[in-house]
């Protein structure tokens, strides 16, 4: 089960899915509020904390009844997996935490360095706001125009045009202001922490922190750079996921 992070939708996985589908049943979904999800199901109350997303995740596992799944969570979804596995370990065969960060904000009291300050997050919200005009319905066909691969353009037009600015703002706050450091120790299922060699959002120091706090977890550092290894290095990312998921069966 592959869960996308903040900013995009399930199309983020499109380059790793073909490799994974050869050996596994792959479940893709859009978080409520993102992509092609039913926006009327979104509410500020439910989705102002990770718990709303975690509830959805567990409901999805129950509904599909596939038995224990290997959950691959990118970025903020990695922490959804952590909280969900702590709550209902029997639903998970294992967790792959891709470019995870349990807390983006620095915590001088404990010496924890997430890499950002609260002001930085406000600046991100401004960037979102500034680009809301750019993502308006009228501009979307131009921005998304991709004559060579119309099916891709269609997919992106749908997912990005529907990123309601109010929802994006709330999701950005959940993503960057949550602190799940205390939840890491509660994870009792096999866990792979997969971080990138250079990641401006989740630095290697943070990946090492996650690995140290989750009992028995394994850490791999991908050669991939950036925060989205499933796009920048799909083969390497798919191979790491497949090797781990194959070992948990």
């Amino acid at each position: 089960m592959l869960a996308h992070g903040f900013g995009c939708d399930q199309s983020m996985w499109r380059l790793v899915v073909p490799a994974l589908e050869r050996d596994f049943t792959v479940v893709l979904f859009d978080h409520v509020g993102a992509g092609n999800s039913d926006l009327s199901a979104w509410s500020r109350e439910r989705y102002s904390t990770l718990n709303g997303y975690v509830d959805d995740l567990l409901a999805l596992c129950r509904e599909l009844a596939l038995g224990p799944v290997t959950f691959v969570g990118h970025s903020v979804s990695a922490m959804m997996g952590v909280v969900a596995a702590a709550r209902e370990p029997e639903a998970f065969a294992g967790l792959v935490l891709l470019a995870p960060s349990p807390c983006f904000i620095d915590d001088p009291e404990t010496g924890y360095r997430g890499g950002f300050s609260a002001e930085d997050i406000e600046e991100l919200l401004e960037s979102l706001e500034a680009n809301y005009l750019g993502w308006s319905g009228a501009m979307a066909p131009v921005i998304m125009g991709n004559p060579e691969r119309p099916e891709l353009g269609e997919e992106l037009t749908n997912s990005f045009c529907r990123t309601d600015p109010d929802i994006a703002r709330v999701f950005a706050r959940v993503t960057f202001l949550s602190d799940n450091r205390a939840d890491l120790a509660e994870v009792g299922v096999p866990t792979l922490v997969a971080q990138c060699s250079t990641d401006a959002i989740a630095p290697r120091e943070v990946g090492a922190f996650v690995h140290a706090r989750i009992p028995g977890s394994r850490l791999v550092t991908l050669n991939a750079t950036g925060h989205c290894p499933q796009l920048s290095a799909p083969e390497e990312t798919a191979a790491a996921i497949a090797a781990f998921a194959g070992g948990t069966r």
């Binding site: 995009c8 401006a200 950036g226 925060h227 989205c228």
Partner: peptide
């Protein structure tokens, strides 16, 4: 810094 976050979560993937 905010722009960098936006770059990583929106710009680069797109």
């Amino acid at each position: 810094v905010g722009g960098r976050l936006y770059h990583e979560t929106h710009f680069a993937p797109l």
